[in-house]
Amino acid sequence: MIRIAVTSAQNPEKPTAMEPSGQQSLWTAIILAGQRPEVDAMAPHSNGGYKALIPIAGQTMLERVARALMASSDIGRIVIMGQSPATLKAGLHPDLVEKGNITFVESHDGIAASIHGIIGTERAPWPVLATTADNPLLTEEILDCFFQAHDGQDVAVGVVERQTMLAAYPDARRTWLKFRGGAYSGANLFALHNEAAKPAVDFWSMVEQDRKKGWKIFAHFGPWLLLRAITRTIGFRQAMAKAGRRMNLRAEPIVLPIAEAAIDVDKPSDLELVTGILSAREG
């Protein structure tokens, strides 16, 4: 069940957003559970055409993500977005809907456009954490690491460094963003802290189709940053900071020490890997 207690015992000095009462603001978690317009490699495995409802070891991917978010003391409410909210709601165990502070919102075309319409409103007040339903290895531990590292950035993106991944899963095939000092794979965790984050969401709506090609994204910030990214003469943190300044916001990556944070389900081999991990984890 989502906990309403507002504490930060593991990191008492961590800066936090504060409500007028002096309490820490809990995060709104948005689970992106819609279908992309392109052909999905996971369609044959989906339940009724919805990738989010693929069952793994007894629970759908959506349910696993929702339960992980409910277990976090940093999360105050959950919004599930998809083209068919009724289908998604029917795919969850009834106790999740009854006990959790969960609402369902119909999504529009494009992830960024859907998020932009509700962030900062009564349905999804700041601060906002966006994640995806194909992230079934998400755990309370991963969320704790992410929130403990967040220190007020307007936009923060969870990533895992390649050496962390290969040390745990040497055969794992991920998409890597390569920079000076390391290569990184996304963890599908995006912190949008306040109103200043909205330009980043607007920007993402323009480049969403290039999400797997980091160099195309950085090309929008001018030839100099693109050149440095391609030649790997700039670190990931520095590159994000420069891109953020172009949008008048503070943007940083949050490097997570847990390999599973960057394993989502985009293809059948991912589903096989995740099924094996969860089966071993849950006995």
Rank of each mutant, 00 (worst) to 15 (best):
T87Y: 01
T87C: 01
L88T: 09
L88I: 01
L88N: 11
L88C: 08
K89C: 11
K89I: 00
A90L: 00
A90K: 03
A90I: 00
A90R: 05
G91E: 02
G91D: 06
G91H: 03
G91M: 00
L92G: 08
L92F: 04
L92V: 07
H93D: 11
H93M: 04
H93V: 01
P94V: 08
P94H: 07
P94D: 07
D95G: 00
D95H: 06
L96I: 14
L96C: 15
V97K: 00
E98H: 02
E98V: 03
K99L: 08
G100L: 02
N101C: 01
N101A: 08
N101T: 10
I102C: 00
I102T: 01
I102Q: 01
T103C: 12
T103A: 13
T103Q: 14
F104M: 02
F104S: 02
F104T: 02
E106D: 08
S107R: 14
H108I: 12
H108K: 14
D109T: 11
G110Q: 14
G110N: 11
G110E: 11
A112I: 14
A112Y: 15
A113N: 12
A113D: 10
A113W: 06
S114Q: 05
S114G: 08
S114W: 04
I115T: 08
I115N: 04
I115P: 01
H116A: 15
H116G: 10
H116C: 04
H116E: 13
H116N: 11
H116P: 00
G117F: 00
G117S: 13
I118T: 06
I119N: 05
I119G: 10
I119A: 13
G120E: 11
T121Q: 03
T121E: 00
T121M: 01
T121C: 02
E122N: 12
E122K: 13
E122H: 12
R123S: 13
A124E: 10
A124P: 08
A124V: 11
W126V: 05
W126G: 03
P127S: 08
P127L: 10
V128S: 06
V128E: 05
L129H: 12
L129S: 07
A130L: 06
A130E: 11
A130D: 01
T131Q: 03
T131W: 03
T131H: 02
T131C: 14
T131Y: 02
T132W: 15
T132G: 05
T132C: 13
T132N: 15
A133I: 10
A133V: 09
A133D: 06
D134R: 06
D134I: 13
N135A: 11
N135Y: 01
P136N: 08
P136K: 10
L137Y: 09
L137P: 03
